[in-house]
Design a protein around this nucleic acid. Sequence first.
DNA 1: ATGTCC
Length: 477
Amino acid sequence: MKEQLKEVSKNCYTMVPKGNNIEIRVYLSQRLFNEFTEDESIFQLYNASLLPGIVSPVIGMPDIHTGYGLPIGGVMAVRYDGGVVSAGAVGMDINCGVRLMTTKISTDEIDKEIIGKILKEIAKKVPAGVGKSSEIKEFKKPDMESIALKGAKYYVEKGFGRKTDLEATEDNGCIEGGDISAIPQEALNRTDQLATIGGGNHFLEIGKIEKIFDEKLASEFGLKKKHLYVMIHTGSRGFGHQICTDYTNIMWKNSDKNGVRPPQKGLACAPILSKDGQNYLKAMACAANYAFCNRQLIMHIAREAFVDVLKKPESELGLDLLYDVAHNIAKIEKHKGIKLLVHRKGATRALPKGHPANPPCYSETGHPAIIPGSMGTASYVVVGTDKIEETFCSVNHGAGRSMSRKKARSEFSKKDFRKQVGNVIVSTSNIKSLLDEAPLAYKDIDEVVYTLVEAGLTKPVARLKPLGVIKGEGEEA
DNA sequence: ATGTCC
């Protein structure tokens, strides 16, 4: 399908399939287009365009790659009235997202050994890796009703954080409408993973702010060159995964009853206003709020570790939450004057300045969109420009894989891995289990970020360079 | 991404 894509403006490729007025659009630089082999992902965008109530265009971000149903790096907007919601188009890891903390700690006053110590201290309390559950009793059997209704606020009120953290979290850390009666039993059995990182590309990272692109925005965000930052990338763990699995099954089974015919199971869906649709949104809100709590708790534990190791009060260290933003979620939003449900799967919301849904502290700047790169390379903070409405206010969510996990594991040796991550401290000695996370298994983060910058959609604020990272062990073979 | 096939 790649041959059918035509570049209509800088880095913006589109096609409008016959018999369907919905535009398929993907943002790629010249280099990313030349290297593009993910034909299947374009076909997935096309399949999504066939669903009822879709609003043109269906969009692929520069980090697009084939997923289950909708590709990762996909944006699918649907009319709230008459449209459908698809669990697969939100993704398995509901409210997978990133939070970024700034600090008052300059890298001049800290050495590698200290960073290793802090990471070790955090790792003692925050398990990482597939299947890991919390070892802290309080988090093993959480009050799901409170989490569903209050989100991150529930734990902030219990002392795990500051009130100001909520103002710096998307939707104040709470998606409304959470209702535990909509959670299937199987998922209710998987709520013991709060304060855990998980596997795959999830991580906790300490790094330094390497480069500032926009002095004014950076200073408003409190991003100072050479200062340390802490980034947390994780989601709703097995809980969200189970909700996606269960509702995909429910929606698929009830396709005829609900009068929808998704082209494949990964796009199983139900009318937004149907019982199945509403129940999914209630359960999705619960998983999203669980993920906000997960990142809130990990952040709190990280703050404690900094205080313990550096023996300074928290106020002296900063450790302020810059922002927490989801990149796997469906949200009710108004675009072009229409009430829509915007599915972002591996895509980050980036509201421009002046947008009413911005948190008050970012109304004059637009909120920071946090784009994590692969381990060992770099991450970015960007903001959406006044053109960002073109993508329903969405940007990419990371570098995007350039190689399957399987291929990366067969391609790279432990030595290759060490070389690729360079000086970055890695929490585990089991490097073999991290080969699929090697930097070269991902696209070039600079290229991916600049694709949208050149398209006029984003403005880079800062480039962040990792110094040390906690990663969960994955598969070895 | 994921108790990577209860």
